[in-house]
Write a protein that binds this DNA or RNA. Structure first.
Length: 155
DNA sequence: GCCAACGTTGGC
DNA sequence: GCCAACGTTGGC
């Protein structure tokens, strides 16, 4: 089992929105970056655990934990001209973009802010802690996962 | 295939 | 709202 960090702007979907969703489950659609797409298509597996990260938020940081309930499959929003994620290059035979499904596991009582992550020993190598890192689907090491879960337990 | 211009992300 | 960093586009 692997660990990930998925970013979302709360205005798009927040962890509270996910908590209020049917079965507390959502598609993770709209990823339109090749590197992130490759993770979704090739690496994110059912059962993997995910930190739900709020970006462009007050504060930005990790809001909780989700579980992947469905591995990568074509993001059909790319085929829908009405969708803001529409991509005219995508087709049924060549979906280009992929999504996964995630289910809320645990919503933390508070956000663990990015500033906290940055000052926590052992997390220096995390992509999200590095300036200018825009990747919205990021792998997290088992060690980093453990450290952050410990932080969450002390909230 | 280079790279300047442009658009987007996202912290602050 | 600013702007740095990054990804993508398109002219050549």
């Amino acid at each position: 089992m692997k660990h990930w960090l998925f970013k979302s702007e709360p205005g798009s979907i927040s962890i509270s929105d996910l908590a209020a969703s049917p079965k507390k489950t959502t598609h993770w659609e709209g990823v339109r970056n090749l590197q992130a797409r490759n993770f979704l298509r090739d690496d994110v597996a059912r059962g993997d655990l995910v930190f739900f990260y709020h970006s462009n938020a007050k504060p930005s940081g990790i809001a909780g934990i989700c579980k992947v309930t469905r591995a990568g499959y074509p993001d059909h929003f790319a085929l829908d001209p009405e969708s803001k994620y529409f991509d005219p290059r995508a087709s049924k035979d060549n979906p280009i973009w992929y999504m996964v499904d995630v289910k809320l596991g645990q919503k933390f009582s508070e956000i663990i802010p990015l500033s906290r992550l940055k000052e926590t020993p052992g997390l220096e190598g995390m992509m999200v802690c590095r300036r200018g890192s825009r990747l919205s689907i990021q792998p997290v090491t088992a060690g980093e996962w453990k450290i952050i879960v410990k932080l969450a337990a002390r909230l």
